[in-house]
Design a protein around this nucleic acid. Structure first.
Lengths: 170, 170
DNA sequence: TATTGTTATACTCTATAACTATA
DNA sequence: TATAGTTATAGAGTATAACAATA
């Protein structure tokens, strides 16, 4: 399988120190994503498609709503939905209330795909975490959550919407 | 600042479960990389450039050696070195032994840049990990290392060199 | 005038292929 | 014939801009 994304530039430290947080996180995240992508590919679905599909299932959402929730650009959402429709996993339904808007609904096949994907994902996570002792596992997840969660040091950075396009320094 | 990389498709789960390993890792890794990139940018250096520079400092290396060590394609290495030379941080020296080969050496400015970058990186990691209790920190790093390390479940996947180019499924 | 979804397009990043100069 | 480095180029992925339909 070809790598989905190039390894993070920081992930290539030749001799990872025990304290090289960045390398550890990049490596873990990258490999897990790669394995997840490979596993889902066998179901004919991409991680992104799964994400959109699973979100669409939670209620009646327009494309823009969906894009916002999942964190995609609306034009990327168009492409993703084109794929999903072609694969028969979702369909766009005109909204009776607003004729500009299209509600995204999952098909039965889509529901099944999500269910199967959930199983695959859960299995993968269980397999990975199974290597750790029970307490270690708990602490790991707690610690990550603490870092990532609202006003932790690794909570989401909102990109400056009007930042000048970077010109690629050295 | 503009996001360097789009958020991982898996990282966008609307309501992260405590056990959503993938989301936690992606989010942590992505944000840390973003912050690291921003911090290094103030030094006029990219994470990749830092990586190459720091590796080049460890001895006399050819471009290909460097590329292999750091995990870059040789053509990408050319571009990276072009930047580094233009910025006066590294230079290509012809090898006396083999006239096809060029040894990559850091300049004094390059050495300084690496030293400064090291400081910035260490500070950032310390700041992030400072949020955790001492024991929590140890367990986190141990656990990550265990997952990522040789024959852990998230150890590096070697890409199949002759896999057919993926055609983008759903 | 503003908004939804679409299309067309430009930009970034990386890798493949072809070339040169050596070996 | 094979290898190091270079250049040119194509591919994949994303976002910006312009547009049509509707509000």
């Amino acid at each position: 399988m070809e790598a989905r994304t190039a390894p993070s530039p920081v992930a290539d430290s030749p001799q990872p120190l025990a304290a090289n947080l960045g390398w550890l996180l990049s490596q873990a995240s990258y490999t897990l994503t790669t394995e997840l992508t490979a596993a889902l590919e066998r179901l004919g679905i991409s991680p992104r498609a799964y994400c959109v599909l699973a979100t669409a299932m939670t209620g009646d959402h327009t494309q823009t709503e969906l894009a916002h929730t999942v964190g995609l650009d609306k034009t990327t959402m168009v492409v993703t939905l084109d794929h999903l429709e072609k694969a028969g996993l979702a369909r766009r339904t005109p909204s009776p209330a607003d004729r500009r808007v299209r509600i995204v609904r999952t098909t039965e096949a889509g529901d099944e795909a999500v269910a199967k994907a959930r199983g695959v994902i859960d299995d993968l996570y269980a397999e990975v975490l199974g290597v750790l002792a029970t307490e270690q596992r708990t602490v790991l997840l707690d610690a990550l959550l603490k870092l990532v969660t609202h006003d932790g040091p690794l909570s989401a950075v909102e990109p400056n919407p009007h930042a000048p396009r970077r010109k690629r320094g050295t």
